[in-house]
C-alpha cells in the first residue's frame, strides 16, 4: 500500500513542481521575445555579460540557499526563492510572524506560520507592484519626490533596528561576538557596504554558529 504523504512531504512535492515550472517560464521570457521579434541574443554581449555576472551570483545563491532554507522552512523557501527580496522582506516577515505566534521555526506550527506570512507578503508585494506599474505616470513624481528619498534610502536600518532589538535582547550571549565582528569588519573594510551586505550574511551565520557551539560545549548557553 502506498504510504500517505505528510504535509511537509506534500509541500516539498508541490514546491519542486512550482519552482521548476516558474523557472521554465522565466527562461521562456527572453526566448519568446526573441521569437516574436525574430531576433536572437548578441552572443558576444551575452557571453561577456554572463561571465561578468553569473559566477558571483551563482556562488552567492548556493550559499544563500544553504543559509536561508533552515530559517525559512519548506513552504517559505520555495516561495521566497521564487519571489526574491529574502533578507530585506521575506525573512523579517517570517521572523516577526514566528515571534508573534510564539512558535519555533523548526516545529510544524512554525512551518505553517512562516509559509502563511511569506505567502501573504508575496501576494501584497506582487499586487502593489502591479498597482505601481498601472499607475506609473502619476506615481513617479510622488515616489521620486526628493523629500521622500531619505525615507526609502534608510529602509534597511529602520527594519533591522526594530527586528534587531527584539532578537538581540532575547539572545544577548549569542549576539555579542558576531555583533563585534561585523561592526569591526564593516567599519574597517571599505568594500563592505550596501552592495556586499548580502554576501556577509552567510559569514555572519557561520561565525555565530561556531561561537555558539563552542559556548554550548563549555556550558555557557
Amino acid at each position: 500500500m502506498k504510504k500517505e504523504m505528510t504535509y511537509i512531504d506534500q509541500v516539498h512535492s508541490f514546491g519542486r513542481k512550482w519552482n521548476i515550472f516558474v523557472m521554465i517560464m522565466l527562461i521562456a521570457y527572453p526566448m519568446v521575445t526573441a521569437l516574436i521579434f525574430r531576433t536572437g541574443p548578441d552572443w558576444h554581449g551575452f557571453t561577456m555579460g554572463l561571465i561578468a555576472t553569473a559566477p558571483m551570483y551563482w556562488a552567492v545563491a548556493v550559499v544563500e540557499t544553504i543559509t536561508y532554507v533552515p530559517m525559512l522552512g519548506a513552504g517559505g523557501s520555495y516561495l521566497s526563492f521564487v519571489t526574491g527580496n529574502i533578507s530585506n522582506l521575506k525573512l523579517p516577515v517570517a521572523l516577526n510572524a514566528l515571534e508573534q505566534a510564539d512558535v519555533k521555526a523548526s516545529s510544524e506550527e512554525g512551518e505553517v506560520i512562516s509559509t502563511i506570512s511569506i505567502a501573504v507578503s508575496s501576494i501584497v508585494t506582487t499586487i502593489i507592484i502591479i498597482i505601481g506599474v498601472l499607475l506609473i505616470r502619476p506615481l513617479t513624481p510622488v515616489l521620486n519626490a526628493p523629500v521622500l528619498a531619505p525615507a526609502f534610502a534608510q529602509m534597511v536600518p529602520a527594519l533591522f533596528g526594530a527586528l534587531g532589538v527584539v532578537f538581540i535582547a532575547k539572545n544577548v550571549k549569542i549576539a555579542v561576538a558576531p555583533l563585534i565582528l561585523m561592526l569591526i569588519l564593516f567599519i574597517a573594510v571599505p568594500a563592505l557596504n550596501a552592495g556586499t551586505v548580502g554576501i556577509m550574511v552567510p559569514e555572519g551565520v557561520l561565525f555565530t554558529l561556531g561561537v555558539s557551539r563552542l559556548m554550548y560545549k563549555k556550558g555557557m548557553l
Binding site: L95, A105, L163, L179, V205, L209
Partner: peptide, 15 residues
C-alpha cells in the same frame, strides 16, 4: 536556529 537568525541580523547591523 537562534544563532542563524542572530548571524543574519549581525551582518545587517554591521552594514
Amino acid at each position: 536556529q537562534n544563532s542563524m537568525f542572530i548571524g543574519m541580523i549581525s551582518a545587517f547591523v554591521g552594514f
